[in-house]
Each structure stands twice: as C-alpha cells, then as structure tokens.
Simulated assay, not measured.
Amino acid sequence: MANNNNQLVVPQANAALDQLKYEVASELGIAIPQDGYMGNMATRDAGSIGGNITRRLVQIAEQSLAGQFK
C-alpha cells in the first residue's frame, strides 16, 4: 500500500492486506501496477477493489465471531 496515510491497528497485517488487494483486483479483472501507484487507475475501479475488500473483511470478521460463539 504505497503512499497510504491510514494507520493499521495491527501493522503486521500490511502484507495480508496487500495480498487481499491483488486477489480482489485479479478476480475483478483489474490490473494493479506492480509499483503500487494507483494514481492512473479509474476511480470506479479503485472503488470496486475497496468495496470488495471491505465486504471480504466483514465476511471474515463475521465468520470469526460466529466461531467464537459456537
């Protein structure tokens, strides 16, 4: 995540979030430049990637919470 001003609560999660970004982009058929600079990417594409990442993270959290209460 190049030039990102957001601070991660768990800094060790950075690599996993980068991996997730590339996975989601690949599934959507969107190419992310290897240098990580997304300034030339269409806003719609960036929004699609971010929205799908958020959906996936919520799904992971829900599954984790469901597992705790079984």
Rank of each mutant, 00 (worst) to 15 (best):
I60H: 10
L20K: 13
L17R: 04
Q34K: 15
F69E: 14
N52C: 09
T54G: 02
E62G: 04
Q7Y: 01
R56A: 01
A66G: 12
I30M: 03
V58G: 08
L57T: 06
Q68S: 13
L8Y: 02
E62S: 07
G67A: 14
A31R: 12
T43M: 13
M38D: 00
Q7G: 03
V58D: 11
L28G: 06
G36R: 12
N4C: 15
G50K: 11
E27T: 10
N14C: 11
M41I: 10
Q63A: 14
L28D: 06
L28M: 13
E23M: 10
Q68C: 14
L17N: 00
P11I: 02
L57N: 09
Q19V: 05
A2M: 15
N3A: 08
L65W: 03
G39M: 09
L28Y: 08
I49W: 03
V10A: 07
A46V: 00
N5R: 09
Q7E: 01
M38W: 00
M38C: 05
G29N: 08
D45N: 03
F69N: 15
Q7A: 02
A66L: 14
N5H: 07
N4K: 12
T43H: 08
E23L: 09
E62N: 09
L20R: 10
L65I: 10
T43S: 12
K21I: 05
A31E: 14
P11A: 12
P11Y: 09
Q68A: 13
M38G: 00
Q19M: 08
I30W: 02
A61V: 12
L65C: 11
T43R: 12
N3G: 02
P33C: 08
Q63G: 13
N14L: 10
L20E: 06
R44G: 00
A42K: 01
N14E: 11
N6V: 03
G47D: 13
R44I: 01
A13C: 09
E23G: 04
D45T: 00
F69L: 15
L8A: 05
A13Q: 06
Q59F: 15
I32T: 00
I32E: 02
L65V: 05
M1A: 15
L65K: 10
D18H: 11
M41Y: 07
R55W: 10
P33A: 11
A31Q: 13
I53Y: 02
A66E: 13
P33L: 09
L57S: 10
